[in-house]
Design a protein around this nucleic acid. Sequence first.
DNA 1: TTGAAAGCGATACCAC
DNA 2: GTGGTATCGCTTTCAA
Lengths: 333, 333
Amino acid sequence: MSTVSRVLNGSPDSRVTEGVRRRILAAADELDYSPNLYARGLALGRGLHITVCTWSAVTHLSAQRAHEIHTAAVATDRQVIAIDGAALSSPYELLRLLTSQLPAACVFVSGGWRPDTIEPVVTTLHERGVYCLVVDSSWPLDPTTPCDTIRADRTQGAALGVSHLIDRGHRHIALVSLLRITGRLEGYEEALSAHGISERYIAPLDPDIPYRDDVALTECARQQTCQLIEESPQLTGLFCSSDVLAVAAMGAVRDLGLRVPDDVAIVGFDNDTFGAFLPIPLTTIEHPLDEFREATTKLLAGRLDGEDGPWRRERVDYRLIKRATTAIPEAHN
Amino acid sequence: MSTVSRVLNGSPDSRVTEGVRRRILAAADELDYSPNLYARGLALGRGLHITVCTWSAVTHLSAQRAHEIHTAAVATDRQVIAIDGAALSSPYELLRLLTSQLPAACVFVSGGWRPDTIEPVVTTLHERGVYCLVVDSSWPLDPTTPCDTIRADRTQGAALGVSHLIDRGHRHIALVSLLRITGRLEGYEEALSAHGISERYIAPLDPDIPYRDDVALTECARQQTCQLIEESPQLTGLFCSSDVLAVAAMGAVRDLGLRVPDDVAIVGFDNDTFGAFLPIPLTTIEHPLDEFREATTKLLAGRLDGEDGPWRRERVDYRLIKRATTAIPEAHN
DNA sequence: TTGAAAGCGATACCAC
DNA sequence: GTGGTATCGCTTTCAA
């Protein structure tokens, strides 16, 4: 019955007698009524839910972001469909899934998505009336892509870490990183150049290490760091592309009989939980999770509420967390 | 058109001429046809998707499990709807969301769900024809609950860790744990009793520490461990309910000028990534993720395929990962 | 202000 | 084997 629909959806110009209204709500409550999602979707020609496409749902960061969106969704009484990119058989699959769902909004989360896979999907979805939001992509999207984006500039993050080492007086600074990680090398270069430092020391972790094989990666980092320091004993600073790598690098420094931070200072990346609890708490770069959350929630809520305006390209910044691995050595000069 | 439907769904007794079949498939391909989820759901009276209800989507374990289900889903060409328990406003909300979706299967993932919230939901869903699977609940469910379950027995996990310390010759062993975590205390008791050890040393981490405040928790663990060892210097073994706590406990041991593992041996829990990379790699208890995955995938696939039979109560076991924090001290006796 | 009726797009029954 | 047709539950338009 149409009146019922009007009441239950709080239709815009709800011209319903208060008495009828109350009776309907009471009945719905009594019968434990819950609307059939499919009928509604069919009538509306689209879903009311938000779809979250994570590149890989297992990483902590993705999970964290997905959670933020769930929270935003509940706030607007919407369901969430999750698509786990890592489980997809092909990028084409993504578009197929999305068009057969046709959500109200689609959020692409996290770094792995490449612009060339996302952009066409976003374009198609936008044509079909789906609002798209891309959160934390590693690479900037084409400015004409019809969606909002929220990004932290990876180069800024890396530069922040390296600059901190320079501030602490270090001049011979190495980069310990998978070079395939976006922005690390660029940030390293940028910070050193800005301070007129020309020496470069790079531990290019084996590019053949399979994705997510943390054990192999760490072992490799340890070896390469050892070798790097032996070859260039003037090194006093290490910037590592993750906290796990930083722990490995600390191991290497210990192996060589050197001390952290007195002989070698170390900066990690990610602000992983364990960093604060290490014997020598780790200085690291923090992802601005709260800013991501805030921007995500605000954009989603606004756009789903019909808010118009040009596509936003929001930027949030990484933050430095100073801890003991870059402490200035006690004055025992 | 019915024939089209028959072809596209590979209907059971697909009595369709090969020529027609091919033409339909070709047309579908050409038109880039993707079936409307809502129409299908409406006609079928239910969804074809799998709903995953995580207690809290942000923890690594939940995310990992959710990923397994995504993978299983893709394998059977199903979509996944995720419900993040942590984002729900009330437990009642859960049932409302689920009945308005009516998935083909519903998987409850991870420890936080209490039997008394899950059981009625499962029962209702089952009445409506939804297959339910409960993975890794902290507490065993009522045996009559109409669903399959896969559990690792938390008591077994804790007992495993404590027994290992006993095997290593320790007799004065402390438990460092939030007591609200299921099974830790029981496993501790069980293992000690089984070896006729009567001494108990417990650091009952402040029960008022807010959920997921790792920093406060760790600080508290460090202090309490310190105090415990000072009061009972005969202590030589610590069993901690998580790897993060174990790191804090190691800090306490260091603070007291004692050595790990020579003076005090430590066992953690979770096999977190960082454990292997600590200066003294951490002995810990590993969640049997692969067994969970295997059992989950098999049950889901089978049941969705119409497999009948009594409800299963599968059990998987935690595993001990031996590392340096419980190494037998070099023979310098 | 309310209700009747026409879809939305797929499925499944039932004649052909 | 194939295709017409009622049907699923809800929204929306249009008359009453």
